[in-house]
Amino acid sequence: MSSPSAPTPAPPPPAAPGSEPIVVTNLSKWFGDVVAVSDISFTVWPGVTALLGPNGAGKSTALRMIAGLTPPSQGTVSVLGANPRRDTAVRGRIGLVSQEEHLFQEQRALDFVTLAGQLNHLSDAEGAARKVLATVELDPDDKRPIASYSKGMRQRVKLAQALVHEPDVLLADEPLTGLDPRQRLHMIKLIQDLGANGVCVVVSSHVLDEVERLGSRVLVIAQGRMAAQGDFHGIRALMDDRPHRIRVRASDARELGAQLLAHAGVRGVSVSATDELEVNTDDVELFRTRIASVAKAANVRLLEVQPLDDDLESVFRYLVGR
């Protein structure tokens, strides 16, 4: 099991065709004249997938359609091979963490999570509720009503009610909102564990730092449309129209810049200090293979090579800003 700070785990291998937990095909949803989701298609495999997009992008609507709560205006959703809107049995294999904050606030956490277990047909719902509350680091015997909890605690109650019946698919709408850093680490670890154990977890978020720690597989939605999907490093590599920006520190930045322009497929160089330059290149692979030999030939010592836009934030900014 990976820790939150460790490199993101490799996505599990794709299952056999037909066994995909979530298949969304040409899905659209409009409310009157407002198009919330427009013709999106994707497949989600077991493991953690982040549904990424700015506020109002259509993430929550997409999750509600996957959960079977909202009928699509167009297109289809298949969860575990069934239509979640028609097949109530499949809904018992889905856990949903909604964004709503006012769920049964007068109840105790144990009662609320027990109710969720009973709704999902657990015979020993209270036992399961106690177990899952402990998993999210809440005291099952806490007599206080949920209304008196901090936002982070309420968030964990919501996660607990979604996990109480140990679903095959977990849909979590902004589950890390309101958690303090320690709780956030714990929650990310829990979500990663679920994914590593074969649960299909879809986590929506607009906080890139969270998503980067959860895993590298992302679905990016912007203005209701699918902007990209896949591993975000791979998405970045596919963005040919955007030159890669790389910062290079070297003993003679000016000399190295001139040589890179001539020999390493570099589009532009900007020298910011005597030992630092920023390189723009369309062919990052060629640059990587040549920089060492170019530096050696120019008798320049390389100190550091750092991609500036290979992180999720840059990818997201490009995609959403397009």
Binding site: M1, T88, L115, Q118, L119, N120, H121, L122, S123, D124, A125, A128, H165, E166, D168, D193, L194, A196, N197, V199
Partner: peptide, 23 residues
């Protein structure tokens, strides 16, 4: 101690409705 799916007994929809009723 890893994640394991629930393999215990499951009740029917009647129990779920009873929970909503009682609640």
């Amino acid at each position: 101690r890893g994640y394991r799916r629930y393999d215990g007994e499951r009740s029917g929809v009647g129990t779920a409705m009873r929970s909503v009723w009682l609640n």
